[in-house]
Amino acid sequence: MNWQAVGAIYRYEMMRFFRTIAQSFLSPVLSTSLYFVVFGTAIGSRINEVEGVSYGAFIVPGLIMLSVMTQATTNASFGIYFPKFIGTVYELLSAPVNFFEIVLGYVGAAATKALLIGLVIMATATLFVDLTVLHPGAMVAFLLLTCLSFALFGFIIGIWARNFEQLQLIPLLVVTPLVFLGGAFYSISMLPPGWQTVTYFNPVVYLISGFRWAFFGTSDVPVALSLLAIAGFLILCLSVVWVIFRTGYRIKP
């Protein structure tokens, strides 16, 4: 293992993050606060409780997931797309590193950033609502697995994208809608039966449900199924990354 290289990539990516610190932290904190004001206060005042939890608190896990998923995806996709775009990818390819080390550097950094943002949002949330975490261990595990798998997913998009439009397409057109429709702001049980069935095809439902269970002990789907879903997504992403590196897809002619 070339740990120096992993460290160099990781450090470089984190430096990029801290160079734009205001943008990195401020924008998720601001948007989360807005969600609390709009959803928690305005709408929450008309919804008493969802499954025994105040509406303001109920949306916290979904809000964290929303940010973590989009941040992990966009950070990782941009991280690997940018060297391709400006041509510095030559350095990665000509260095004595293997693809696993490259992935570890980029995905590790993107996951770290997403995790930091997730924690900042959680801290922001405590300013608005009382928050208790029933299963802290499970909460951390779900958070880490989500950061990691979506960073891998972002990495795949970054490799695949040929231009900036494609780079933004998937997060914008796929991830955000899936999260919004994945029960971030409501319980699946609040939907009519027909829509409930449709919803179960949305993989994000399982992640948010499991994550919410870690907070409040209530969930839309069994926790084991949630864990299975996130593990499955992780394995799927890992397999795709493995294929990319076996074939040199879109990075090595």
Partner: peptide, 22 residues
């Protein structure tokens, strides 16, 4: 092909790191 916002020193150090050297 260079990362435009990086500093010269960091850029050179980065390459050394990629090659597995302290």
């Amino acid at each position: 092909a260079l990362e435009p916002f990086q500093k010269v020193w960091d850029a050179v150090r980065f390459t050394r790191g990629l090659f597995g050297l302290r």
